[in-house]
Design a protein around this nucleic acid. Structure first.
Lengths: 215, 215
DNA sequence: ACCTGAACACCGTTCAAGT
DNA sequence: ACCTGAACACCGTTCAAGT
């Protein structure tokens, strides 16, 4: 509890005024990123929102880019952790793919953040992180298709197809919200994708029964 | 040829110094948009590049937003024209879908521009245009699936699936370039998508032969 | 009609000075 | 060690003045 308390403070209550930390700035930047995009990661507005001057910022960071880098590191940890979270627990390769599909279509906040960042992948700093996250996800998907019984080559084709569909769904959901299926339509849409991208694949290897379709 | 020549100019050559036009600014803005994203649409840098002062800009436009609006109008015309261009010439519904698929996977520059703009769809001005373009494309795709013989409902499901895949491909191509199939792999990937999203659908209606797969 | 030039506000960055 | 406050550069916007 006393981690950030200045050792020279006389009364304990003064410690409550707690100095800024790199983490606090990074989290604020990530929130700004999610709601307002890259350009919302602005030092002065963030400083105002946090109740300090921008001079304070430059004590913790070299510049705006360093703040971005810290926020991106946070995001990368989230994405790579979430992507594998719980999925590895399932031992059946079909179940793992099913969970990945569910996850990809569930979190619209995470999806928006990804799109915001992917959008700014022209920026070399952002681009590097986005590429790392994308490739990690594709690698994992590829592995799942291999476990399902596909050849290296077929797994490459279908994992790319599936991933493109995931990402595209988030985009369509954002850019044509009127047209994106909801409610019962969405459940049917989800089944259709699952059948096309997973069930009909496991049928190729002839070992998996289509039981999870009703979950 | 004398449209923008000041009537009071004494020597004809002076006209060559040609005043700025709304169109010239809009095209410059669109170029900046394609290469540097939304934030590259900046008045002062554009003015420098065009060899005028920013004061000139504010004669033609109320503000930066108006410039963006003009650039977006240009883009919208391109996208809606290109989307239908040549496709309507084909009378066979399968051929139309085939052409749309080919088109969607061909122009990476157009794809990048779309992603740049879709990225900035948090901005109300950009968002409105992106949504119009997205919904027009989905409406057209939907119509194609109807013509292929699908029910209204099935056409909704499959056109969404297909469009999500289009958009997602562009994103994967940009965000995981190492992983996106090229050459012979890409041709195979393309066939796989075409078979899944179109051929197997027309088989449902039982009227179309899979001849174009070898094109 | 169209453009320049000076002015002001806002944000990024620096740095000397405070505690 | 951490923060403030003033300074400067850059870009958006305005507007009086030029041609």
């Amino acid at each position: 509890m006393s981690a950030t308390v200045p050792s020279s403070s006389i009364t304990p209550e003064v410690a409550a005024k707690s100095n800024m930390t790199v983490e606090a700035w990074a989290e604020a930047a990530l929130e700004a990123l999610a709601s307002g995009g890259l350009e919302a990661v602005a030092v002065e507005p963030l400083a105002r929102r946090l109740g300090v001057t921008k001079g304070s910022f430059y004590w913790h960071f070299a510049n705006r880019d360093a703040l971005l880098r810290a926020a991106l590191a946070l995001w990368e940890r989230h994405e790579t952790a979430d992507a594998i979270h719980g999925v590895e627990a399932a031992k059946d390769p079909f179940d793992r793919l099913f969970l990945l599909f569910k996850q990809a279509n569930a979190s619209h906040k995470a999806g928006r953040l990804y799109l915001s960042l992917a959008a700014a992948s022209g920026d070399p700093v952002v681009g590097a992180v986005v590429r790392r996250v994308s490739e990690l996800r594709l690698t994992y998907l590829h592995k799942c298709y291999i476990d399902l019984g596909l050849s290296e080559h077929d797994a490459m084709l279908w994992s790319t197809f599936a991933y493109a569909t995931f990402i595209g769904n988030q985009q369509v959901h954002r850019d044509a919200p009127e047209r994106f299926p909801t409610g019962a339509d969405f459940r049917e849409y989800f089944k259709l994708m699952l059948k096309t991208l997973v069930l009909d694949r496991s049928a190729d290897s002839g070992t998996i029964s289509p039981r999870s379709l009703e979950a």
